[in-house]
Design a protein around this nucleic acid. Structure first.
Lengths: 139, 139
DNA sequence: ACTAATAGTTGTAGCATACATCTAATGCCT
DNA sequence: AGGCATTAGATGTATGCTACAACTATTAGT
């Protein structure tokens, strides 16, 4: 269990550097948010904050940056004018696709030699681990 | 494979917040470095930089902070006066132990229900994944 | 002895983040 | 309907972590 702890920490520590190398153009964190927005096909800022354990203000600024770059659009929710629904613009989708490509290449390099059985199990473990955080961490 | 990518990213994104909650007292990154120093029983600043993909300057400041807090000692290497060997002070070891405790509790909460077989395999996967980064990322 | 490489420090700048505060919109409750 | 609490988001401010560049001190190669 200590090993898991140590290795996850090491990974987290390195993640920034690795990510910065993978897409030096896109403001890094923004990339993650953009990916999430795309994956969810439209979501609110609060969702992002909750999912990544970020402060509202942080998300607000990041989204503003993404909008400024023309990668996302904000549409006020017709039902509730407090909220804004976020959607990637075509340009955003494109930017995402291109970074996804290099990202995938990097992952393939790292995981290419793994047996598909191991990959499946690894993914399963990660999902399980992260889900535990979702529920157990917000009392 | 995309799942692995997404989940690892999500984890990395959350890691900071989680870590900050676990030991609000210790300057967070410093904790990681302190743990590594302790685990390695004495190491140099460059080793830390290499292991966590950090810049020399970053490590230098972090270590300086740790020293200021009285958690590590720097001894110039007798063989090579350029280097400094880092060691945790008793106070550092103690601080580490206490945060380790709460950290372990959090992990136990998350992983307690896992079969030990799964834990072993998860640890193994993480090691394997991180090792691939060690070698494959520094051409 | 001169040059190149290495370990570490310091100056400077930037991004990501949190906390506190503020506004606008909504919901509830009597 | 009016009033208080809640929620979504924005903005002000401060801080932490980080990188890059320039500098010193030490060591190694030739």
């Amino acid at each position: 269990m200590d090993v898991i702890q140590r290795e996850l920490t090491a990974f987290a520590r390195r993640a920034r550097a690795t990510a910065a190398r993978l897409h030096p153009d896109l403001p890094l964190v923004s990339y993650t948010l953009l990916a999430h927005i795309d994956h969810q096909q439209g979501c609110r800022a609060t969702d992002l904050a909750a999912h990544y354990l970020l402060d509202k203000s942080t998300v607000s600024r990041q989204v503003a940056a993404l909008e400024k770059l023309g990668l996302v659009e904000r549409h006020p929710d017709p039902d509730d004018h407090r909220m804004q629904v976020l959607h990637p613009t075509p340009s955003g989708t494109e930017a995402l696709a291109s970074t996804q490509a290099s990202r995938r290449a990097a992952y393939r390099k790292r995981l290419g030699s793994w047996a598909s059985e191991d990959l499946t199990r690894f993914a399963e473990y990660l999902l399980r681990y992260n889900e535990a955080g979702d529920t157990g961490t917000a009392p």
